[in-house]
Design a protein around this nucleic acid. Structure first.
Lengths: 343, 343
DNA sequence: CTGAAAGCGCTTACAG
DNA sequence: CTGAAAGCGCTTACAG
């Protein structure tokens, strides 16, 4: 591989001069600049990343730690991060913790996960990344970031109470409130909820939004709430109970998977979603538009969450001193399809 | 950050000795070894990746170039690659070309894409990765890899005729043949195909498998073939033509999305997939199990493709001289669900 | 405007 | 078994 030294020799100048030119320093004569640039182009010279990183202790690369790449939310966020990096000449190094693959859906009960996170951070510090983005698999309060970390870190899709760490999430409360209001506007008065697991933060936040919309319209009814565990089967079971024991006309599921379970139950009973019972979901996963009828749901702005996270980390790197830590919430969007009908 | 030198001072030995110990060289007394290791542990010392990479010109990192992360196949492949790297202490640096996002589904007609690939490779060479894996978004013959590349490169999900470059794909021909045979075993004699776009390699290979199964059973009928363009709408249109003009009893779609289009048409006509007409898909995308009835389809072994690619690149790095270039084909698996019924 | 020299933190012959 | 020294390819004061 061709080096700075060789370029310098070919042009009969010092390596200092070549380096200065390549780094856009202004104190160089136009003539030598042109000549050097030409030779650089001819030879296809590319600076050695390692050498530059070692000396300048600035690598233009960001470490991304991901709970699990196969989680439905990960791809969109990472795509967003990378599109922003592209525009700003930053590179991404990925560390996929693979928590779901390793420990199943209950991985966050496994204490070992905090060690893995810290190890990944350590690793990135050793690689000398300029910053770290932690892309969580679901919302929670993260408390395992080492204190006095020497590089900026931002959390995507979760948050923390540790000082100096920014986060970007989406607005669960508002989204759930909007969807519930949408159902109410369609004439529904008995709106059941199939929530996720009880202690989950998404569940709590969405419940808050749901209750807010209900109480604004004097429609609360605690019997209409059923906790489930996010998967299709649990949606089916919850639907069975709710429809046997209450006279609800609409079911708001806190994710699309459970909504699919509701469809299953309805189909089994010869009932038509969106006609006999309105159904709404959350997430806008790809599968939601293949349900029949297509599911009305909440779109999570994944790409935007990624881009915002990237923006925050790059800002903090650029001006570490006057950067202010922030907790961002990006707005969701209601996607109206065919599973909610006016009563 | 703590350095080798500091460790050496704390232990009153030379940095050479510390380095030797850390790198598992055997020529060290047990006593000093223990002492040094203890201090290393105490201080939480981590070697500087840049310095090591610069000196040893071995970085233990692999560059992954991806046509587009949001393509349905990408996540599984990358997860497979990373799980293998995890086990072998390698790091992955990702370059997401974002071709679909930038240029839509017809990006490979855009000549600029080859430049992007070459640029990404250049970039990785400059970062001094030990090897490169190119994860393609769909099967094709790739011919833009620079000759005399100084690092090993393997292609995942596509292939090349350039010498010295291994590839790993899945066996389209066998899979299509198996699925067609499966349909035949279920008593179907008029099996229509909704293929992808005509020149696409997946289309050609799957067609070959389909025809093979048909001719083995004396069942060929050219009228039963319809080209479409991989999306849901085109599947719908193709179904309309096929079902209006032929007396087929089964439709084999070359991807799940087009199968969803067939469902749409069937539903519109009051026909039930899997009862009135059997439908089979290809890809086993997540949405396929949410179709009603759940779609019988072909599972592509994405994780395995990723792991195999990782294995090849690491083998080639380990023994560059006696590594033999190979084109691998991983087997697919038929997923039987409810959309194919015996006649 | 230009260049000689130090140094980033390691690894690797080499000498003892 | 241990260590002094060269060198990987850059950047960055500093001197001229």
């Amino acid at each position: 591989m061709i080096t700075l030294k060789e370029i310098a020799e070919k042009c009969s100048v010092s390596i200092t001069t070549v380096s200065n030119i390549l780094n856009g320093k202004s104190n160089v004569s136009e003539k030598t600049k042109q000549r050097v640039l030409e030779v650089v182009k001819e030879t296809g010279y590319r600076p050695n990343y390692m050498a530059r990183g070692l000396r300048a202790s600035k690598t233009n690369s960001i470490g991304i730690i991901i709970d699990d790449l196969t989680e439905f939310s990960s791809t969109g966020i990472i795509d967003g991060i990378m599109s922003y990096f592209d525009e700003h000449k930053y590179k991404a190094i990925l560390e996929n913790l693979r928590f779901y693959s390793k420990w199943g859906t209950k991985w966050y009960h496994n204490k070992g996960y905090e060690d893995s996170v810290q190890q990944a951070i350590d690793e990135f510090v050793s690689i000398k990344v300029d910053g770290i983005i932690y892309v969580a698999g679901h919302a929670r309060c993260i408390s395992c970031i080492p204190e006095n970390l020497e590089v900026p870190l931002v959390i995507s899709y979760a948050f923390t109470e540790q000082p100096g760490i920014s986060s970007v999430e989406f607005d669960d409360i508002q989204a759930a409130c909007d969807m519930t209001t949408n159902l109410i506007k369609n004439g529904h008065k008995k709106i059941a909820v199939i929530a996720g697991s009880e202690k989950n933060i998404h569940t709590q936040r969405r419940l808050e939004g749901y209750k807010k919309a209900l109480s604004e319209n004097g429609l609360e009814d605690p019997k209409l709430l059923k906790y489930a565990n996010w998967d299709r089967t649990s949606g089916y079971e919850a639907a069975k109970e709710l429809l046997s024991n209450t006279d609800c006309t609409a079911v708001f599921c806190f994710n699309d998977l459970m909504a699919a379970g509701v469809y299953d139950y309805l189909n089994e009973k010869g009932l038509t979603p969106g006609k006999d019972i309105s159904v709404a979901g959350f997430d806008n996963r790809t599968m939601s538009q293949f349900l029949n009828p297509a599911l009305t749901t909440v779109e999570i702005p994944l790409v935007e969450i990624g881009r915002k996270s990237a923006e925050l980390i790059l800002n903090q790197i650029a001006s570490p001193d006057d950067f202010e830590t922030q907790q961002c919430f990006v707005e969701c969007k209601i996607i109206e399809r065919d599973s909610v009908k006016a009563k």
